[in-house]
Structure formats: structure tokens, C-alpha cells
Amino acid sequence: MSIPVIDFSSYSLSKEDVSEEEMLSLSQQLKTAFTEVGFVFLENTGIAQEEVDRVLDSSHKFFLQPDERKQPFNSKNCVINPNHGWLSVAGEKLNPSKPGDIKESFNVCSLHPDIKWPSDGALTDFKELHTSFFHRCKELSLRVVTVMAHSLGLDPEVFLSAHRFVGTDKNSSLLRTLYYPPVKIEEVKEGQLRCGEHTDFGSITMVFQKEEGLQVLGLSGDYIDVPLIPGAVLINIADLMQCWTNDKFVSVIHRSLLPRAGDSKTRRSAAFFLYPDNEIQITCLDGSEKYPEVNAGEYIKACFKAVAVEN
């Protein structure tokens, strides 16, 4: 199994519209990818690798600071939104049965004017870069779900109307930048990974990689290494979308392995997690009732609670 690569230039962020013929082609390709693999690479989306690099470089400067400098931005201290801010190494375990993940991250989950942002020294452009990239990812993700709706023969408003409040406190979608630090193999706990086996929670996830290290579970039951394609966006289906479409689109398990013994290289990436608005009730669109109705906001909240490490 390999992850399909699709040219998205006909509906990139630089285009105001897409022709019916181009939409049909994109729809057919996305449907095949999301029903057979669950992951896809999109090239020529309008988000250039240079734009991604600027965000990752800015977050990297933040992560390399001593923990005491990062502590004021800890998500546990964010009264406005408990999912916004810094998560320390092993502060989360995406596979709850294993030790905390060897990664740290910064979540942009709220754009509330009272949110405190890193701004000292080399981080003066941190807020601007991250909020701008959040909006760019939001726009691209909505174009992707528009194509997904077409691929199922649905009015795009079915998905677009459920994501109207992305970027507000009525929606939990977030941009996450990640840093996987060097690993001392002798200090790793049994079963511990950089990122444990998991599926994502919401509608879709868009991943921007700087280095390799991600693995996807194929239909054969074996993990495959995700290649690094500069400038391409890796997109996958998440759990609520699988329920919403009654398994037409599949949410696939993935993970990030430890480096090999003696390999001290780090890994950086960014991910945009698109979630339905908090008030949306998710039911099978075909009326099958295979999955019970669930409130998107409550579901996402429970998922975050399940993977959080108390310390």
C-alpha cells in the first residue's frame, strides 16, 4: 500500500473557483484515497513549504527554551481555553495504554484577544505567524471537505455549515506545532513512543512534515513509513468523519516511532485538526444509525481528557 499523491492546483488557495470538470476529477481521486487508504498527499495547495518552515522555525525557537520560560504558556494554565498553549514532553499519551509520548507541542486553539502569547526576544513574530497559518489551514481544510462532499454526492453545505465557527470559542479546531526531541534509548520506558498509536478525533487532519518518522497502519495490518514530500500536505480522515459517513471514509491508526539506537535526530511537524462546531450533532448521513448520535463538542472534550497525562 502507498499513500496517493493528488495535484490540488485546480482548487488551490490562489484560485477563487473550480470548474465542474476539475471538481469531478478531484472528487474521484479523493474518494478513492479516503475509502481505500484513509490518507492522501495534496500537492500545489497554495501553502508553500517556505510558509510551513517559517511557522516551524518560530515554534522551534519556543521549544528550545528552558521549561521555566515555557511554563507561563502551559495549556493547564489557560483559563480561556484548556486546550490552548504548551504541552510538555510526556504531557500527553495518544495511546492511553502506554507511557506519555516523547514530544512537546504548542496548540493554537483560541484566537481570543485576551490570550497571552510568547513574544520575548526571537519570538516577537510567534503570534502573527501562528495565527496567520491557522487561518490559511482553515481555508484549505474547508476546500478539502467541499471536495469530499461532492465525492459523496452531497451538497457542500452539509459539511461547511458544520464548521462555521472555526477559529472561535464555538469550535475546538486547532493548529498544533510539534517537536520530538533527541531520545536517549536507555531512558525510554517500555512501550513508549514519540507518538503512540491512535486515530484522530474530528473531521480531517492536515499534517505538514519537516522530517520523516510517521507510520500509517495499512489494510494488510502492517505499518508503512510515510515519505517526506516537500511542499505537500498529508491529509487523513478522523473518527467523527468516519461515523458521519458511515465508514465510507476511514479513520486510520498512525504513530511516530522512536529513532533507531544511536540516532539523535529530532523531528518537527505541524498539524491542523478540523473539528465540527461544538453544537453539532453527528449522525450517519445515510440515516443508517450504525453509530449513535454524538455531540461534537462533548466528544472532542472527552477525547482530550482521555489522552491527557495528569502531573
Results as ranks from 00 to 15, higher is better:
residue 109 C to I: 00
residue 115 I to W: 02
residue 100 G to M: 05
residue 214 L to M: 15
residue 76 K to E: 14
residue 74 N to C: 05
residue 104 E to C: 12
residue 163 H to Q: 08
residue 241 M to N: 08
residue 69 R to K: 15
residue 291 Y to M: 09
residue 238 A to E: 13
residue 3 I to G: 02
residue 71 Q to Y: 11
residue 136 R to P: 00
residue 20 E to V: 14
residue 293 E to W: 01
residue 35 T to W: 00
residue 185 I to Y: 03
residue 149 A to H: 08
residue 7 D to F: 10
residue 186 E to S: 15
residue 296 A to Q: 08
residue 266 T to R: 13
residue 281 Q to W: 10
residue 296 A to P: 03
residue 63 F to I: 08
residue 218 G to M: 09
residue 106 F to R: 10
residue 36 E to G: 13
residue 264 S to R: 12
residue 24 L to I: 02
residue 126 F to I: 01
residue 151 S to M: 08
residue 170 K to F: 05
residue 204 I to G: 06
residue 227 P to E: 06
residue 220 S to V: 06
residue 283 T to M: 03
residue 112 H to Q: 06
residue 121 G to F: 12
residue 209 Q to R: 08
residue 258 L to Q: 06
residue 267 R to Q: 11
residue 130 H to A: 01
residue 267 R to K: 14
residue 16 E to I: 01
residue 201 F to A: 04
residue 213 G to N: 13
residue 1 M to D: 04
residue 111 L to P: 03
residue 155 D to Y: 10
residue 129 L to I: 09
residue 234 L to T: 01
residue 239 D to T: 12
residue 191 G to D: 05
residue 8 F to Y: 15
residue 140 L to K: 02
residue 268 R to L: 12
residue 149 A to T: 09
residue 269 S to Q: 06
residue 245 T to Y: 02
residue 52 V to R: 07
residue 169 D to L: 13
residue 165 F to K: 15
residue 176 R to E: 04
residue 243 C to P: 00
residue 190 E to V: 13
residue 149 A to V: 12
residue 290 K to M: 11
residue 47 I to F: 06
residue 274 L to M: 15
residue 311 N to I: 11
residue 301 K to I: 04
residue 88 S to R: 15
residue 38 G to I: 05
residue 64 L to Y: 01
residue 199 T to V: 14
residue 219 L to N: 15
residue 94 L to W: 06
residue 39 F to E: 03
residue 62 F to N: 05
residue 237 I to H: 04
residue 113 P to F: 02
residue 14 S to Y: 07
residue 238 A to I: 06
residue 158 V to E: 12
residue 118 P to E: 04
residue 181 P to L: 07
residue 251 S to F: 10
residue 137 C to K: 02
residue 60 H to G: 03
residue 61 K to Y: 04
residue 110 S to E: 04
residue 268 R to Q: 13
residue 298 E to I: 06
residue 181 P to I: 05
residue 16 E to T: 10
residue 34 F to I: 06
residue 135 H to K: 07
residue 164 R to A: 14
residue 265 K to D: 05
residue 249 F to M: 12
residue 127 K to C: 01
residue 262 G to W: 14
residue 115 I to Y: 07
residue 15 K to F: 03
residue 230 P to F: 12
residue 253 I to H: 08
residue 71 Q to H: 12
residue 103 K to I: 01
residue 12 S to R: 11
residue 171 N to D: 09
residue 121 G to W: 11
residue 291 Y to H: 14
residue 224 I to R: 13
residue 296 A to G: 08
residue 117 W to L: 07
residue 145 V to G: 10
residue 89 V to G: 02
residue 159 F to L: 15
